[in-house]
Design a protein around this nucleic acid. Structure first.
Lengths: 120, 120
DNA sequence: TATTCTGGTTACCACCAGGTAACTGCAAAT
DNA sequence: ATTTGCAGTTACCTGGTGGTAACCAGAATA
């Protein structure tokens, strides 16, 4: 899930990708946003994710300091998640990705054959 | 590599994550940057990547319009890669990720036990 | 008494990402 | 005549990711 070789890199960018560079974490962070949310809510809102994988990702996000987990000693149990300062600071980056995608997604890409050079 | 469920989502953000949300693509885009680079160079610069995976990732990046591939009909073959306009537009986002990581990486995170509420 | 509600964990299993090594094709150099 | 160089591709194999289903506790509800 997290790539140890990446996380142990001496390049800070590589380390960053080692922690948030997978498909689930950006989705989860984006779904949480600025609100406080419970495990069951996440499980039903995030599409196609299994409880097992969701629990793993949340644990890693907490370990990496992006997420705060508040467990209330009640029965049935109640656990609330919210982004930390670090996690909140990541939201604008996700906004940029959204804007970037909306701007460029539909742009047609020339086919490779149009770009082959017959030099020589 | 690319997640079809993500790419077929009706949420543009999810689709974006479906295309660039893995660990190799941000690394490759970052390594290329604004320069023109050959396959062999990428293979030796990007750490820990195999030629097979590199070729796959480059192909997907080209298909998604982030990368331009220029093949020169020479022998031995010469192939040059450079980011498209879309790919170049993604570079500032990677810069933001670098800054974000440098700012927050070393911040200590309180342990979960410090945050357990004993309410009730 | 049995069911429900919540937030997970665990065992088990299948698939696929990704690694390795060998191979290609042709020209130029040794 | 053999080696080298480039940009991959292919076959083969393994490990890890991720899915499913069952299970937990203990209170409240029916």
């Amino acid at each position: 899930m997290r790539d140890d070789r990446f996380c142990a890199s001496n390049c800070p960018f590589t380390r960053a990708i080692g922690t948030i560079g997978n498909k689930w974490k950006p989705i989860i962070i984006n779904v949480i946003g600025t609100r406080t949310i419970r495990f069951g809510q996440l499980d039903s809102i995030v599409p196609h994710i299994s409880r097992k994988v969701l629990a793993e990702q949340l644990k890693e996000l907490e370990e990496d300091g992006l997420l705060e987990r508040w467990a209330y000693k009640e029965l049935p149990p109640r656990v609330e998640y919210k982004l930390s300062e670090k996690g909140l600071a990541f939201l604008p980056i996700l906004e940029n990705i959204k804007e970037w995608n909306c701007k460029y997604e539909v742009a047609l890409t020339p086919k490779a054959t149009d770009r082959v050079s017959y030099a020589k």
